[in-house]
Amino acid sequence: MSTTTGPDGRSVIVTGAGSGIGRATALAFAAGGARVVVADLNAEGAAAVVAEIEAAGGSAVAVTGDLGEQAVVDRVTATAVERFGGVDVLVNNAGIMDRMSAVAEVSDAEWERVIRVNLTAPFLLTRAVLPHMLAAGKGVVVNTASEAGLRGSAAGAAYTASKHGVVGLTKSLAVMYRDKGIRANAIAPGGTSTGITVDIEPGAHGPAALGAYMGNVGRLAEAEEQASAIVFLASDAASNINGVILPVDNGWAAV
């Protein structure tokens, strides 16, 4: 078995890499020697992360666009293959919050947008990179799920459904491709300092109902703590870890 534990030389795609957990993850991979595709909807944020990586002597390229669109997914995948020779690691991190809406309060627009960004986009990108991983006989996918993928009391209906879907996608991928050299795992972050804000409807039932449970969140994690878990799951040190949903939440899942 290889004794290599770091990402040195690997081609890594990180989505939502222009800020928050994605930015911290892209920087962590690059610091270990990986070549990183920085994918984000925000062109300015993605360019800033690429500049930061390059200033430190690393290699990165930005691809911007909505990952819910197949054309953008194809461009991200092609960039990794053409610039870095393939895809060794895919980190499906990009995501958006809902409005903490209860089922009866969720609009079609809120539901469809959250599911598209949080679940459909990771599916599309995973499907796009799999042929390259299968051809290489190896690959790692790490998804960003959530505490909301483990319980029903951490977010609104749309976000909760989307992250439960990410958990299922991760486990299905792990089972179906474990004999092909491909591993799939996910982190389930608890509260994390990322600057994300939630647009809550005043007086809505969802936020009021969830309020009683949010006291269990505990200390907020730093984005770098989530990134460290992602890099570990992608490393050779986690070579026999497959299909795992790893809470990174200061024990919230244990409460």
Score class of each variant (00 low, 15 high):
Ser2Asn: 14
Leu90Trp: 11
Ala60His: 06
Tyr177Gly: 04
Thr120Met: 12
Ser235Gln: 01
Ile53Ala: 04
Val142Ser: 09
Ser146Glu: 07
Gln70Phe: 05
Gln226Glu: 14
Arg10Lys: 14
Ala234Phe: 09
Gly85Ser: 00
Gly251Met: 11
Asn250Lys: 14
Gly9Val: 02
Ala128Asn: 00
Pro247Glu: 09
Ala47Ser: 14
Ala221Trp: 04
Ala43Glu: 14
Ala28Pro: 00
Gly16Arg: 10
Gly86Asp: 02
Thr194Ile: 06
Gly181Ala: 07
Gly203Pro: 03
Ala238Lys: 10
Asn250Ala: 15
Ala254Pro: 09
His164Ile: 13
Arg10Gly: 06
Thr64Glu: 10
Gly139Tyr: 05
Thr194Val: 00
Gly156Thr: 00
Gly215Trp: 07
Ala39Gln: 01
Leu130Arg: 00
Arg35Val: 03
Val141Ile: 13
Val37Phe: 05
Thr144Ser: 10
Ala30Lys: 07
Ile230Glu: 04
Ala28Gly: 05
Glu224Phe: 00
Arg151Thr: 15
Gly68Ile: 08
Val141Tyr: 03
Val91His: 07
Val217Cys: 07
Asp199Asn: 12
Gly206Ser: 09
Lys163Glu: 03
Ile196Gln: 14
Gly9Trp: 03
Ile230Trp: 11
Ile196Arg: 12
Ala204Asp: 01
Ala94Ile: 05
Pro247Thr: 13
Glu224Leu: 01
Tyr213Val: 07
Val89Tyr: 04
Ala136Cys: 02
Phe84Lys: 00
Ala24Val: 03
Gly195Gln: 13
Ile96Leu: 14
Ala102Val: 02
Met133Glu: 04
Val36Ile: 08
Pro207Val: 01
Pro7Leu: 02
Ser11Val: 02
Gly16Glu: 01
Arg116Pro: 05
Asn185Tyr: 10
Thr126Asn: 08
Val72Asp: 02
Glu225Gln: 06
Val14Glu: 05
Leu210Cys: 04
Ala56Leu: 08
Thr144Phe: 08
Gly211His: 11
Gly68Glu: 09
Glu52Pro: 08
Ala254Gly: 03
His205Gln: 15
Asn93Pro: 03
Ile182Gly: 04
Gly68Met: 10
Arg183Gln: 02
Glu105Phe: 04
Ala223Tyr: 05
Val244Lys: 14
Ile187Met: 08
Lys180Ser: 14
Ala48Ser: 15
Ala208Gly: 08
Val114Cys: 12
Gly195Tyr: 12
Thr25Phe: 08
Gly181His: 01
Thr4Leu: 15
Gly45Lys: 13
Ser19Val: 07
Ser11Cys: 01
Asn143Gln: 03
Ala186Leu: 02
Ala78Asn: 00
Ile200Pro: 07
Asp249Thr: 06
Glu112Trp: 06
Glu201His: 04
Thr192Leu: 11
